[in-house]
């Protein structure tokens, strides 16, 4: 087989797996609404905690709103990442997927792709709600927010898919996943929050590219690392 053919086959397999997950989600819409509602809840609860919409507060602590936004974008993602392999294990479909003659790394990429698309979809709606309730007008810099969301959720779902697969066989998985995941994604949160502070407050974009660089580095490194070690996480011993 020619290399191009093999690449296309690989991509086809990845998409088949991702599409299966997305189709299940599209039909049940269970995780989408739960995750979105959780995000919305965080936006609201944090407003009560910090009085963040208050004009004086916004002037005094301009970094607070991007911070709230990213808590709302990142934390609820854990629901989906937990479910991703949990449902496969409960229905016994994981074994079927593992038995299929495909590279384990491709299975990872398929699951990752589904999680990523899911998270981006939830995040976009959350961003829209955030901008509406906190009065951020659409400006020419808004597309940068989309880029930050794409990059941040990529790294988050790469590590999250790996860890999600790992904890899915453990009894205390619901607690364990955030405990494992959050320390690792601290650079993502730092980069995303600081990047969006510049974008949302329409400052000069002095450091935005530095933060984007951090996100890209995190994404590339952890996508590759998770791809490589995934087989050890799912193999039955």
């Amino acid at each position: 087989m020619s290399p191009t053919r093999r690449l296309l086959d690989g991509l086809g397999l990845i998409w088949t797996l991702a599409e299966k997950d997305l189709r299940i989600e599209l039909r049940s819409r269970q995780a989408f609404y739960t995750t979105l509602f959780f995000s919305f809840l965080i936006l609201m609860v944090f407003n009560f905690a910090f009085d963040a919409a208050n004009q004086d507060m916004r002037k005094a602590a301009p970094g607070i709103l991007p911070g709230i936004l990213w808590v709302a974008l990142i934390f609820p993602g854990v629901i989906q990442l937990n479910r991703s392999f949990q449902s496969e294990r409960e229905d016994g479909t994981l074994l079927g997927i593992l038995l299929s003659p495909m590279d384990r790394g491709l299975i990872f990429l398929g699951k990752f792709l589904a999680n990523w698309i899911f998270l981006v979809a939830v995040n976009l709606v959350t961003l829209a709600i955030f901008m509406a309730v906190y009065n951020f007008p659409l400006t020419s810099s808004t597309p940068w927010m989309l880029l930050l969301i794409l990059l941040a959720s990529l790294g988050f779902s790469a590590v999250g898919t790996l860890f999600g697969a790992m904890v899915s066989s453990i009894r205390t998985r619901e607690v364990l996943l955030p405990i494992l995941l959050f320390p690792i994604v601290i650079p993502v949160i730092l980069a995303a929050v600081n990047g969006s502070t510049e974008v949302l407050l329409a400052e000069n974009f002095r450091f935005l590219f530095q933060w984007i660089k951090i996100l890209v580095a995190f994404d590339v490194i952890f996508l590759a690392a998770s791809y490589l070690v995934f087989e050890y996480v799912v193999e039955e011993s």
Binding site: L162, N194, A217, A225
Partner: peptide
């Protein structure tokens, strides 16, 4: 797996915190 993932994260953590 966690021991590997954690360690390769160290330089990224360091860079991001320094810039922050």
């Amino acid at each position: 797996v966690l021991g590997i993932i954690g360690f390769i994260n160290v330089p990224i953590v360091w860079m991001s915190i320094r810039w922050w």
